[in-house]
């Protein structure tokens, strides 16, 4: 029980009438990397956005079932969505730094939490950037616009920005899909280091990436969770025919 961070019980999601996620039940272990794979449109990203309630932003979305994070149902009426998102960070597919300086990007989260102390902010910025393995590249130009960074650097900056609010869980939505191979490997390496401290859930359509980075893998297809297990098992001897077909490249 202690090792399981998130329990999902019978979670379904509707876009208006359309059922986009069908009775998903899964358990996501703590301090491990869990990969969500599947063909595009299978619901893996939608599911990821359920975990920090980003889907709340879409008015037509309705969710049933339970999403227990450390035993607390985050869809409970008494739970504050803003506080949820402070605990569950998110890195998006397209790097989306604010059009501010590098420093301000990192300090954004702590600042909106009311932190004003300059030395503490400086410290958080440095530690976060170091954790995201980008400190050496940007330490001399913290005041420059974040938009001047390369795509890979921007994405690592976004990871650092997420780390700065010290979340428990980090959700990554195809974080390397728009990056070149070198940047991708840097991100993957980073994911590997971060799992010591964080529970990471990563959506990817790149099977090699899932195999390289994750401890557990869940395969989604048509809004359903087909199979979940240790990454090794999923990639070597999947239980379901559909999983095998997908992994061997027969569709998707």
């Amino acid at each position: 029980m202690k090792d399981i961070k998130i329990h999902v019980n019978d979670l379904s999601l509707y876009y208006g009438e359309k059922k986009a996620l069908k009775e998903i039940s899964m358990q996501i272990p703590a301090n491990k990397v869990t990969a969500l794979i599947g063909p595009s449109g299978c619901g893996k990203s939608t599911f990821l956005r359920c975990i920090n309630r980003m889907n709340d932003l879409i008015p037509s979305v309705r969710i049933t079932g339970e999403m227990l994070v450390e035993g607390i149902d985050i869809y409970d009426k008494n739970v504050d969505v803003v506080n949820i998102r402070k605990k569950i960070g998110m890195v998006f597919q397209k790097s989306n730094p604010f059009p501010k300086s590098i420093y301000e990007n990192i300090a954004y989260g702590p600042k909106i939490n009311g932190l004003k102390d300059k030395t503490q902010l400086d410290e958080i910025v440095e530690v976060s950037l170091r954790q995201a393995a980008i400190w050496d590249e940007v330490k001399d130009r913290l005041g420059d616009s974040a938009l001047g960074l390369s795509g890979g650097q921007q994405q690592r900056l976004c990871i650092a920005r997420t780390l700065a609010v010290s979340p428990d869980i980090i959700l990554m939505d195809e974080p390397a899909s728009a990056l070149d191979p070198i940047s991708t490997s840097k991100i993957e390496e980073l994911v590997h280091q971060l799992k010591e401290q964080y529970t990471i859930i990563i959506v990817t359509h790149n099977m090699q990436q899932a195999a390289r980075t994750s401890d557990h893998t869940a395969f989604f297809y048509m809004g359903e969770l087909i199979e979940m297990g240790k990454t090794n098992t999923i990639f070597t001897k999947p239980l379901q025919k559909q999983t095998e077909d997908y992994i061997t490249g027969r569709f998707g």
């Binding site: 035993g71 504050d80 506080n83 605990k87 976060s128 010290s166 428990d168």
Partner: peptide, 17 residues
């Protein structure tokens, strides 16, 4: 969140509306 890194745990209180 002043101290870093801090991993405050999920509790009913910290997440309360």
């Amino acid at each position: 969140n002043s101290q870093f890194p801090v991993n405050p745990s999920f509790t009913k209180e910290s997440l309360k509306k």
